[in-house]
Every structure is written in C-alpha cells, then in structure tokens.
Amino acid sequence: MAPGAPIVRFERVGKTFANGVKALDGLDLDARAGEFLSLLGPSGCGKSTALRMIAGLSQPSSGALTWSGAARPELGFVFQEPTLTPWSNVWRNVWLPLRLRGVSRAAAEKPVAEALALVGLTGFEKAYPRELSGGMKMRVSIARALVAKPAVLLMDEPFAALDEITRLKLNNDILRLKAELGATIVFVTHSVYESVFMSSRIAVFSARPGRVVETIEVAEPAARDEEFRLSQAYAETCRRASAALLGAIGGEESS
C-alpha cells in the first residue's frame, strides 16, 4: 500500500458499553499506511477502546470502522502489561501467534529467532517470564506481536508501567523497529512528550465520550534522537499538543 494512504477509517463511531458508559461519540479518524499515529488523551477518554476496535476486540455501537483493503491486514497488539503466558518460556510465548495458526515448532524456528533478534533477546529462549525484568518481558511481548509480520502494530500504553529509563530505551527500540519493518503503528499514550517524540501524527482525544479534537502533524525530524528532543520544533509541537490536551480536559472539569 502506498505510504500515506488510509488503511483503516473510523466514521462517526460511537461506543456505549452495557453499563451505560459512553466511551466514544462521533469519532472520525483514519490511520495511514506507514505512519506512526499516536492517540493522545486523558485517562478514560476511550482511546484504548478505539484501539481495541481496530483490533476487532470491540465493535462500534454506531458509525462504522472500515478497512480500505479487501481484508483486514495482519495485526500485532501490545498490551499495557506484558501479558505473557507464565507457564511457557520465552520461545513458546513468541511462537504462540504462529502456533494458533497451525505453524509447527520446526517451521516457527526461523521467524521466532528473527523476532527475538529484533528485540535483542537472542539467548533468552529458555527463560521463563518470571525470571525476566519488566523491560525484558515487554520486549518478549513486542517480539510476539512482530513474529507474524504485522502490517499494523497496535500498542496500548505499552510502557506505562515501566520506569523512565527502560521506557525511553524501549521507545527508541520501537522507532528503530518501525524503520526496519516499515509497519504502521497506532500507539495509545497519555504522555504528550512521548507522543511528540515518537509520532508522525498525533490525534488528541477529548475527555469521555471521546472524539478527536485536533490532529497534529509532527514535522519529520532528521532523526528522532536527543537532538530532536532539544529542538525548537519539538518544544513547539509539545506546546501545541499540551494546549489541545488541556482544552480537552478543561471540557471535563467544567462539566
């Protein structure tokens, strides 16, 4: 698919849960091929619900979610928690998506080894999740999401539970992986700085019921590194995103 072409589109999507909570209302958004799209918003604004809809784990109550291709492309999903099966070792955890599809152990050797190499976990195949640090568990989770070579990688506040240093390191890893794989990434976060540093485009969500109040394009820097973090453009984009987010939260406080 041509870079920049919409691959999935939300049209006037609303979601009301069985308990009456209105999570989304009139959500218009598209994700474009090859971009890094951040969904930025206050907690409980429905951004995770939107992500789950893309994954097919939640259905819109109103409006429509449409894929532009004939079929839904291959998806990968990274949860906020590592969400590994504690009873199987690293290798078997990464094998899981292929295994569910009937790929044998022997046929999985190569893709699993590649996925583990991508996240720097070669040599940890036999380790159990309990024996790994929080950051390493998250890497296993990312390797598992990558093993089936997804065209779209969905990440739901993947590093929120990690310490700052591990988080920055993993963010850099994600950027490197994106450059290597060329996948589209949809990334849910509540951190302005994280979203600006990582994304090519930021969709700012209003407080619940969520909809997109503003979309901010991040001018592509030469490199997303420490230099970018200190640049004028970065500070300016952060200011814009913060202002949009504050506006979105302000609506909640006045109500």
Partner: peptide, 14 residues
C-alpha cells in the same frame, strides 16, 4: 484467566 490473554487469543482467531 487473564482477560488480556483471552483478547490476544481472540485477536489471532484461536
């Protein structure tokens, strides 16, 4: 069972 893992299985059409 961890409901996220259930979601994961559903995502891969288990």
């Amino acid at each position: 069972t961890d409901h996220n893992l259930v979601d994961l299985f559903e995502l891969y059409h288990a």
